[in-house]
Design a protein around this nucleic acid. Structure first.
Lengths: 183, 183
DNA sequence: GTCTATAAAAAGATAGAC
DNA sequence: GTCTATCTTTTTATAGAC
């Protein structure tokens, strides 16, 4: 069985329980592999398994989100497609964000922080670039990018806290207009 | 030494490392108490220590935030004071939110979820009440309350991810105006 | 590439003295 | 109310057969 086969399972576990909350026993159970087999695929153990999950999310960002934002379409259309993709990725608000989970846990922070910061920055910068191209001021464009991330992350937290994803869906619905204000 | 003495330390640890990331050894180190002494104060162990930290945050909400929102002042002044208090509590964006940390970690979720949901709901409802009193439509008022929580939580995540609290401070600065739009 | 078995370390928890 | 010592369970990790 290939290593890549188990990445979705790893991602699911780490974003659900956090780095410290995931144990090899849980991983063994969910993947159906024995612990020794896990070490065959991931010699550096749990840290490597989490890294692979994180890399998968960062690949999603580049291959899906950024790809959408770089299409030759009007800004508003790009942001609408982006929000659709985000909604799917987070299962309409029912999944949590691995970045957020790992960032909040300072135990695991040192291992993953640089990858996470890169991802946040890249997403924000790409949104900003779209807005600058559409004629917006640089500084304002970057703030709009930050605000988009803030809304998505905040709505995920609130939806989980209330166990009701209505607010996440509402945020996604209005986000494109909000980002494109005054252009 | 009283039980209450160690609550700030517990809060600091749990919001920094999450429930699973905190170990009795760390708690022992930070409080200066031996493990056995910890069990003297908190017979149910780690779960009880986290509960106490969570209760402390919920008390802060009621005694500080909600107290401010119930003062006989104009809406905008209330929200300004609220944001000031929030900025202090989260150390201008450098602390994380215990609610968010525990909500993201589904391991600990069942133990704490009802308390966290109550806190979110109460805060949102109280903001909404202020806005309704100021003449805003009920549904819109509740959405504004949700948006306030979303901005605060999202900005905390982003600030930690980027290791730069500028965005948190910017959000807090504009939040009162944003909440009071059209009233 | 997967397994059984096992080791080594860490974590949660308790007994009992002071 | 705090400590030392100890126990139990869980977790991470590895050795070696198939």
């Amino acid at each position: 069985m290939s290593k890549q086969t188990h990445v979705p399972t790893l991602l699911k576990l780490f974003r659900q329980f956090g780095y410290e909350g995931v144990t090899l026993s849980k991983i063994s159970q969910e993947t159906g592999l024995g612990k020794a087999s896990l070490y065959h695929h991931f010699p550096r153990g749990k840290a490597e398994m989490a890294e692979v999950a994180l890399t998968h999310v960062n690949n999603w960002l580049e291959a899906s989100v950024l790809e959408i934002l770089n299409r030759p379409e009007p800004a508003i259309a790009k942001f609408q497609s982006m929000c659709e993709e985000v909604g799917k990725f987070f299962n309409e608000g029912q999944n949590s964000c691995l970045w957020a989970v790992l960032v909040m846990e300072q135990s695991s922070d040192d291992l993953f922080h640089s990858q996470i910061r890169e991802a946040f920055s890249l997403w924000i910068e790409t949104i900003a670039k779209v807005l600058v191209t559409a004629g917006l001021d640089e500084k304002l464009a970057k703030e709009r990018g930050e605000d988009a991330m803030i809304c998505i992350q905040g709505a995920l937290i609130l939806s989980h806290g209330l166990r009701d994803s209505t607010s996440f869906q509402r945020v996604l619905k209005h986000l494109p207009q909000q980002i494109c204000q005054d252009i």
